[in-house]
Amino acid sequence: MKIMDEFKEFAMRGNVIDLAIGVIMGVAFAPIVSTLVDNIIMPPIGYLLAGIDFSSLAVAIPTPTDPVLIKYGLFLNAVIKFLITAFAIFLLVKGINHMKKPKPTVAAPPTPTEVYLREIRDLLAKRQMGAV
């Protein structure tokens, strides 16, 4: 039963739950980013680069039967999707961290001991000034 208790303690840590939520949000966010990249970002970039469709970019390696295609355009699309996803998650985490910033704490009033020690320090400093 000890292993189950340890697992329960591990699973209930805040970091594990945060990670699970992050993974779920990332999976839900992926189709949005794919649509954004494929239908909104890449067409204008392709237009600016003389009508190139990145998803169709490939290098054909001739073989005796059929050519083998290295589809580097799909790889470029995937890299762009990753960068956009990473940037969006960065902004999301930055916003959450901004909301979580601790409120400035008000300094507690000094204890009587601290007050007495400050008075002693100040008196000693005045005495040193007078002796010099």
Rank of each mutant, 00 (worst) to 15 (best):
A107I: 06
P67N: 06
N97Y: 04
S34R: 08
G130Q: 13
P64Y: 09
D66A: 15
I70Y: 11
D122G: 00
L124P: 02
V115Y: 06
M25V: 13
K8R: 02
A86Y: 15
G14F: 10
L69Y: 15
L124S: 13
R118V: 05
I84R: 01
I40G: 00
V33H: 01
I41D: 02
I24Q: 02
D53K: 12
I21D: 00
R118S: 06
S56W: 08
V115P: 03
Q128R: 11
L49H: 01
P67C: 09
F7E: 01
P110E: 02
I24M: 12
V132T: 13
P112I: 11
L117A: 08
G130V: 13
Q128H: 06
V23E: 03
P112V: 12
T35V: 04
F75N: 10
A58D: 05
V68P: 08
A107R: 10
L83T: 14
I120E: 03
G22H: 00
P112G: 09
K103A: 12
L124T: 11
K100W: 07
A20P: 00
A107K: 13
A88P: 10
P67Q: 11
I120Y: 05
M4G: 06
V68E: 14
L69Q: 13
I41V: 15
N77L: 15
I70T: 09
P31H: 03
M4I: 09
M42Q: 05
Q128Y: 07
G73Q: 08
P31W: 04
V33F: 01
K103E: 13
G51A: 02
T35A: 07
L83N: 07
P112E: 12
M99A: 13
L76H: 04
R121H: 13
A28P: 02
T111F: 03
P104T: 06
S55H: 14
P102R: 12
